[in-house]
Nucleic acid binder design. Structure first.
Lengths: 226, 226
DNA sequence: TCTTTATTCTGAACGTGTTCAAAAGAGTTC
DNA sequence: GAACTCTTTTGAACACGTTCAGAATAAAGA
């Protein structure tokens, strides 16, 4: 599980706690696995876990941050491999789902608190801003030289909107209990196609008023996610 | 707060617990108010609260159910008052926001677990199905004689989609910390207008393929919300 | 080497939601 | 009224996340 070499002893203990936690989360779920279990499995006292992580949620947070870092190269590869707006969008999201797949239950704990930006977890919180910015940058990269003309007025907001769309898909995936999450696969297929078409169509001169309305909406929604 | 006459003594105790809980929830928030506080304020032992409510969440659930029942007449009035698809949709949602306003924090606790249908709370859970069905029926009522032609293929699904849209607005409202939730007001204005336009446009013969795509998407998403 | 300081770890304790065996009432039957 | 059932109420106890005063260990300076 831990791919980095443990430099110091303390660092090694921290990783052992993280690994124990993730293993238990996978085996019995986030809620069932107790901090006492995690500490015991890591061979330390209960309190030690709190020396490394300020809370149980913080473990999930750390997992999330590490996952996003690990994913970056895979995402680069996917974007090189795929051509065109639709394929790139779909593959980018697919990479994330595949990467998170073994820890789907852990991710559920992360998204449990929905979009409440006041909660530490939640992809909208200030704590996750750094990750969010990197993420959104990926969506900006999707758009350059993708073969689809992006309307000037829409362009600066589109990465954020696509990121939001991605969050919707991930959210759906996390609570999707169909065998092998096949419904999410279908959704991803259909939804990316629709999104790509929508963007293409929105570039038509006739669609200017529609774009205007959409932009107004985006403005209102974005106001707090500074 | 309690408007119904307490028939039996037990019923009266139950209501006292509910009232105490809601008062404390409003005063100090759902998390800060403890079951011990609630019981004490109601003048009973801690365990008594659990004789009437199986859990702290269940109190919020009861509040939600009662609220929805109380709201029904107000909704009827709003639908009589308003004409046209857009106005009806907007007023229906506005009635709900106004009614919930004093207990916005309580509703936040309800929506905290997002869309996880496995959680007892959550507007998607089996426990809330009854309320959901009544709610969706209201949106069906919006559509009849609203002056807008609804496409045949879209018509059976539209009430559910509008209900979902409403949930989105409520969710936004619950986490909206702008003064007097003015951002939600703006969002409601813009979003209902867009939705109404979208429905009108979707009726054009030219839009048949777009409708098809949308319907496929709806099919996939609806599969679990039996 | 022997202090002194900083880091790492311990385990008891707190407050929380929740459970439960048993007590207290309230009705009903003889 | 006494015995018996059913409903209501109690308060101690449990498991959990979390805190914290202090012990153990490591690092640094004399």
């Amino acid at each position: 599980m831990s791919q980095t070499k443990p430099a110091t002893k303390a660092e090694e203990t921290g990783l052992r706690i993280l690994d124990s936690a993730l293993t238990l989360f996978r085996q019995e779920g986030f809620d069932t696995a107790t901090m006492r279990d995690i500490a015991q499995k890591a061979g330390v006292a209960t309190g030690a876990a709190y020396y490394y992580y300020p809370s149980k949620d913080a473990i999930v947070m750390d997992f999330y941050q590490r996952s996003c870092a690990e994913m970056q190269p895979k995402i680069e590869a996917a974007l090189d491999r795929a051509n065109g707006l639709e394929a790139r969008l779909r593959e980018l999201i697919r990479v994330k789902l595949v990467h998170f797949a073994p820890n789907r239950g852990v991710l559920r704990a992360l998204l449990r608190n929905g979009a409440d930006p006041k909660h530490t977890l939640s992809p909208f919180s200030p704590e996750t801003k750094a990750i969010r910015d990197i993420d959104i940058a990926c969506f900006r990269r999707i758009l350059v030289d993708c073969g689809t003309r992006i309307p000037r007025d829409l362009e600066p907001h589109l990465p954020g909107v696509l990121w939001f769309f991605q969050m919707g898909v991930i959210f759906f995936w996390v609570i999707d209990e169909s065998p092998n999450q096949s419904r999410t696969a279908k959704l991803l297929e259909l939804a990316t196609k629709s999104v790509a078409t929508l963007i293409k169509v929105s570039a038509l001169p006739l669609m200017r008023p529609v774009r205007k309305s959409a932009l107004q909406l985006i403005e209102v929604v974005k106001a707090d996610q500074v």
